[in-house]
Amino acid sequence: NLRWTSEAKTKLKNIPFFARSQAKARIEQLARQAEQDIVTPELVEQARLEFG
């Protein structure tokens, strides 16, 4: 299971509600691909840039 830093959680809250669950799934996918067990603000930002 993935842990989220408080900064990453804050960044996730800045994503519009309607896109948040999809973004969260993508962020967690990116973390797993990078073999990380902690979601960082950088991963959230990477996903945000993908979504535009």
Rank of each mutant, 00 (worst) to 15 (best):
A19V: 14
L12N: 01
E50R: 07
A31N: 01
V44G: 00
G52V: 15
K11A: 15
Q33H: 08
V44D: 00
A34L: 15
Q46K: 11
E42A: 08
S6L: 12
Q22M: 13
K9S: 08
L2G: 02
K13M: 15
G52Q: 15
A8L: 01
A34Y: 14
I27F: 01
K24I: 15
A19P: 03
I15Y: 08
W4D: 00
E28R: 03
N14S: 12
G52K: 13
R32L: 10
L43C: 05
L12T: 02
T5D: 04
E7N: 05
V39F: 00
A47C: 07
K24V: 13
V44I: 06
A8I: 00
Q33I: 11
F51V: 07
S21H: 11
F17I: 11
K11T: 07
L30N: 02
I27S: 10
A25H: 09
K11V: 10
A8V: 01
E42T: 05
S21A: 15
E42F: 06
Q22W: 15
A31D: 00
T10Q: 15
Q36N: 06
K24D: 01
F17S: 13
R3N: 05
A19T: 08
L30S: 02
E7S: 08
L43W: 04
A23Y: 11
I27K: 00
Q46I: 12
T5Q: 04
R26Y: 14
T5S: 11
F17M: 12
E35D: 12
A34C: 08
N14A: 11
W4E: 00
K24M: 11
T10G: 07
R48D: 04
L30P: 00
A47P: 01
A19D: 10
P41G: 13
E50H: 08
G52T: 14
K11W: 10
F51Q: 06
A23H: 07
E35S: 13
N1Q: 14
A34D: 04
W4Q: 00
F17K: 14
E35F: 14
R3H: 09
S21Q: 12
A8N: 00
I38K: 05
R26V: 07
R20P: 02
S6H: 13
K24F: 09
K11Q: 11
A19Q: 14
L30F: 09
K9W: 15
V39H: 00
A47M: 07
T40Q: 03
K24E: 05
L49Q: 10
R3F: 14
L2S: 02
K9L: 15
K13C: 14
L12S: 01
T5I: 02
L12W: 08
L2E: 01
I15K: 02
S21E: 14
N14K: 14
L2H: 02
L30I: 07
G52N: 14
L30Q: 03
Q36T: 15
A47V: 15
A34E: 07
P41M: 08
P16V: 04
A25C: 09
W4K: 00
A31W: 01
E35I: 06
L2M: 10
A34V: 07
T10S: 13
D37P: 08
F18W: 15
E7C: 07
Q22C: 14
N14G: 09
L2P: 06
